[in-house]
Write a protein that binds this DNA or RNA. Sequence first.
RNA 1: GGGCUCGUAGCUUAGCCUGGCGGAGCGCACGGCUGAUAACCGUGAGGUCACGCGUUCGAAUCGCGUCGGGCCCA
Length: 1049
Amino acid sequence: MIVEVPGQYNPKNVEDEVREFWHREDIYHRVRRLRSGGRRFFFVDGPPYTTGRIHLGTAWNKVIKDSILRYMSMRGYELKDRAGWDMHGLPIEVKVEEHLGFRSKKDIESYGVDRFIEQCKSFALRQKDEMTEQFKSLGVWLDWENPYMTLRNEYIEAAWWTLKRAHERGLLERGLRVVNWCPRCQTAIADSEVEYWDEKDPSIYVKFPVEGEENTYIVIWTTTPWTIPANVAVAVHKDFMYSKVRAWRRDGTYEILIMATDLIENVLKQGRYVDYEILESMRGEDLLSLTYKNPLQDLVPAQRDFVHGVHLADFVTAENTGIVHIAPGHGLEDYELGLEKRLPIFCPVGEDGRYTSEAGEKYEGKYVRDANPEVVEDLIERGALLASGELVHRYGHCWRCKTPIIFIATRQWFIRISDLRDQMLQEIERVSWYPDWAGSARFKDWISNARDWCISRQRYWGIPLPIWICRSCGAMEVIGTAAELEMRTGRPVEDLHRPAVDGVKLRCSCGGQMERVPDVFDVWFDSAVASWATLNFPREENEFRVWWPADFITEGHDQTRGWFYSQLGASMVAFGRAPYKSVLMHGFTLDEQGRKMSKSIGNVVHPEDVVGRYGADTLRFYVLSSNAPWEDLHFSWEGAMNVNRMLNILWNAYRFPLPYMILDKFDISRADTSRYDLRPEDRWIISRVNSLAKDIEENMAGYMLHRVTRSLQEFILEDLSRWYIQLVRPRTWIETDDPDKLAAYATLYTVMSTLVKLLAPFTPFLAESIYQNLVRGLDPGAPESVHMCDWPGYREDLIDKRLEESMSYVREISEAAANARQKGGRKLRWPVSRIIISSDEQLDLGDLLHVLRTQTNSKDVIVLPPGEKPEMDLEISLVQKKIGPVFKGESKDVVEALKSMNPREVKRIIDSGEPIEWKGKSYRITGEMVEFMEIPPANLIPAEFSKGVVYVDVTLTDELKAEGYAREIIRRIQDMRKELDLKVDEMIRVSVALDSSEVLGLISGWKDHISSEVRATLLRMGNDLDIEGELTKDWEVDGINIRVSVARA
RNA sequence: GGGCUCGUAGCUUAGCCUGGCGGAGCGCACGGCUGAUAACCGUGAGGUCACGCGUUCGAAUCGCGUCGGGCCCA
């Protein structure tokens, strides 16, 4: 049974009902079961971090995923769709620390690592549950009951197993490396965890005294004075020119400075020198024999033993002094140069960011960034400071606690990704990237610069490194699974997190005891193994063999360096190939002006706000249609409102025929269009919906979701609502069992039932709601949910491009006619006798002339043969320049004569060569004296369309006038019915008094028509009627006063 | 500083791959319809296609450069 539906589209009701239905009937599982055994589609969900709240970007991300998965399911694919959660790492530790009021790792240790881990775990699980509900409210169908979670033992094993593979392949190494270090979190952080923003720092020029040359200095520049105690060398560029300069101070003293020749003026200005002379110039490589002393060597005892030399390096740029201060313990490039030149890796700074005893008594214990002024002071005291100032520049910060990072040399664990770089570059060629440049340009660039991956973190809440080292002999062992660990110890380990695993000791083959290294994994390593962890590999192997690698993943463009990369890296280590076959890279969500959404600007839009106002379907359709997936989305409320309006129009188009269908007991036996003689417009809309399906399939193949949704929108608004529904409406009012009406029902049914299937992946709630009523209501044998239906596809034999083209002309002509009516002041309510279509081409309007007649409210449609126009009026303009010289003084008379004549007569005379007679004289007029112009006659109002001109004949006859007035009166009575809030079938009594006998006479023949249109049992019309009724109103139509009264019968 | 990307009407955008009349929606102005009605429809105004140079018979579209936004890197 089909039922009537309420007037306006109410997304909340629709979605609540559908959600309840899905839940009650367990539709999600039934859809998945239905497709089992189909071709496989392995999707891996990029795990969102459990922050507790989804934002617009994560909503978009999941909507893209859900739409594609729903589409693939309808196409018959069996899906792997486990949702994923990224639950370890610093962000949660920081949150828990805040909650407990902790300031450092010491607080955690004294609180107890086990209790701390428990807090982190329950926090992460709680956040996950909250976010799950939010995703569900968007209609996102993933396997929410059985998601993969990085904190689960089986997941941890996937990471362990992968590390073991790295070890077996010789790709795991431990080394002293300079890393980004957060002094607050006291851990190494990944390049990708560094956030840059402007910071004000000292900018100092320092003079290093050259050994063996009196009063001579090498000048360097730095923004980190605190690294000067660790300076062990300087670097120059081999091709740059350097000079020894005698620089004079205001007081007449001088010193000899070494720096890049091009930068002398700048440096001396900084140092307020008054004059200089160049003593000697040389290339960078000529400086290599120099040695110098660290100016702070009296404070930093270790410095006295170092030999400070000059080295060549490519990273030296022609900026500042052209000579770079090298502290291998505190800089990436410095460190690499240090290794190459065998410099001491001197790092007198501890994990807490404070100087160690190696920095000497004066500095020991001081926090390095706070020590900057003191170092500067000490340099001044020793005459080593050339200049100092301040500089605002971009500086890195810990992305979680916002502390400025420092670089220090620490012992860390690495995976030698750089060894795999070339293989990775080859692998990405085999992956399909959407858009293409995401892989061929962006990702390629990132991979080309790939460095070794520092995977160790000195924290608690993470996957513990499964590395055990023997205290006696230093032997190392990597454990791959919990079972393996149990085998080695004879005891199972309940939870593979810290601190439980910390206590596990292994026996070394040398007889000594092996202890786990205390570090945990970088969280990027967690998600990196998702494609096999989600299949529970290595615990289970069958699933892995059947499904892996992933068919499809999609994430934002920030994941180029993130998950796209970490997965590829881990997979290269583990399996030597890419873990995914295709990748769709999507954009970011920004505000309407294209700015980042941020709390401080106050421009954050929450997905639940949009859902609350317009519903999940609107949000979904909006984010999909707003722009191409890979471009940034500028969220606009107005845009969302528009989508909502479009869905409302769809709702109206859907509900309009329902009352008639119900009244006529329309049933499934009458739903097949092949039973009827369809009108051309019926065949047209069926052709259009098939074209639409074809278009969607083509665009889905390239994940062009914006094109798909825009095609749907265009079809709903233009083809269905604005055109077909208008055409079909009068047919539904026929009150008999007319085959033409039944054909219209069958067509509407076919179109709507196809359309909801096409919409199902994108607006799953609305599609389901319409499907349940219209399709299931009619055919209880149909699949129980629209999402269990097969994708409708398209039938090429039902696509009639010729008909579609004809209809597009018909629409154009109708619009042009409406335009002409407006110019001619003739409302659409008033019929016209004819419209005339003139074109240079043979227009193929098919059998659609009846459509044109009704849509233009015209009694006749005349299509002229190609190139012909209606007969035009002629207008003349006189060419005085030609007339003057011929007729001289009589010109005035000639002009007068010509103007008084009918232009047609003038043309006839010229063509025939006869003279004209005027005031007794005759004149011979030639063609050049007169120009003729054709203009349409006053009754034909022209309007252009793409293939020609439409003329609307606005000539009024009494007949047309009568019909026009009748319709004016009908309309006003209908208006009053509305005002009285009458039921559609309620009968009335009407009196109409009007002050024009002429009009009264005209409309008398329309009395019956008016009565039946407005459902009047009694209709009185007259010049001077006594008017009474429940409602009386005065109207004016074209200068005629009409008084109407209406009463219930 | 480097890689990628975007820049089209007041706003949001299509078109760019594959060169040939710049097309929508919103907003604005005017109008229509009244059996979708707190709905719907039409018409109009509104454009230096960021800027410059080049290729071409022809450039929003292809190439180079500049400026501005975004992401990533240094």
